[in-house]
């Protein structure tokens, strides 16, 4: 269970006197156990869409339905992994993972100890169980955060740029880690990212969004075989998909900066002139 249906959803924010339309008549369907990524330039409303599904925001019009029921607020059926790791700094790693299960709402989800043990094992954090979040590396922190969400066994995992704050190497390791978890125990995943490679590498479908107002521009079926392997990133099929998505996102990003292109071209001149002068000085 974990199907999501977004129908004709718009979201407007009032900021001072101006209304900003973050999302405009967005339709989206996510099947149970499907891995969907939302990608787009900043300001395209991808995080807003995720927040609407999570229940942190309510749509200005339209409806978000999860498992047949309209979303009325956040809940443990939809686990959210935030970009800024949501770990309680006063709790140890194992206490953080056990947090959700200790809440009254999750009393019927089983005894915490074996679940926490299994997740510590799976995330490779068993040796760090007594550490506090501040004592962990960025990658370990995000693994602990994912474990703490998986502990309550949500049918849907909503991830808002979960690896955005990590360095490139750690990020690619975390992507494989996430896929491994997902292959072992499939859930519906909606993952927001601005990293096009990541969006394609992880997804069954990649939804490309454009900004002002936020709309779905294209839905791309990623027909790469599973399980995914890092090497697939250099296959022709992957590169074709990436170039295609890049073109859409770039074309969109350029629209906003179109008048600046001329300035960018002319500023290239003084730049190279300056480099030449500096070279002359160092010689």
């Amino acid at each position: 269970m974990g199907s999501i249906s977004v129908s004709a959803v718009s979201k407007r924010f009032e900021t001072g006197d101006v209304d900003v339309t973050a999302l405009d008549a967005v339709d989206m369907q996510v099947r149970d156990q499907e891995f969907v990524t939302l990608v787009g330039a900043s300001g395209c409303g991808k995080s807003t869409l995720l927040n609407l599904i999570a229940g942190f925001e309510t749509p200005s019009s339209g409806q978000v339905v999860v498992d047949g029921a309209p979303v009325r607020g956040p809940g443990p059926d939809r686990g959210v992994v935030f970009q800024q790791t949501a770990l309680f700094p006063w709790l140890t790693v194992e206490q953080n993972i056990a947090f959700g299960l200790s809440l009254r709402a999750n009393r019927d989800k089983g005894e915490a100890t074996p679940i926490v043990e299994r997740l510590l094992e799976r995330t490779g954090l068993a040796a760090f169980r007594k550490r506090r979040p501040a004592e962990l590396s960025g990658g370990m922190r995000q693994r602990a955060a994912i474990a703490s969400v998986l502990a309550i066994d949500p049918s849907t995992l909503l991830m808002d740029e979960p690896f955005g704050a990590l360095d490139a190497l750690t990020r690619s390791i975390m992507q494989d880690f996430l896929l491994e978890l997902w292959e072992a125990r499939r859930k519906t995943v909606v993952l927001v990212t601005h990293d096009i490679d990541e969006a394609i590498y992880l997804a069954d479908r990649t939804i490309v969004m454009t900004a002002h107002p936020g709309r779905i521009s294209e839905v791309i079926e990623v027909d790469l075989p599973r399980p995914r392997r890092y090497e697939m990133r250099s296959t022709a099929a992957f590169i074709r998909l990436r170039d295609h998505v890049t073109q859409i996102v770039r074309a969109e990003a350029m629209k906003g900066t179109a008048p600046l292109d001329a300035t960018a071209a002319s500023s290239a001149m003084p730049d190279s002139a300056m480099t030449a002068t500096m070279n002359a000085h160092t010689k």
């Binding site: 999570a54 443990p76 686990g79 959210v80 947090f99 959700g100 809440l103 009254r104 709402a105």
Partner: peptide
């Protein structure tokens, strides 16, 4: 937000 999402009252 994380605590609310997990179902904290």
């Amino acid at each position: 937000k994380a605590a609310r999402m997990m179902g904290a009252d």
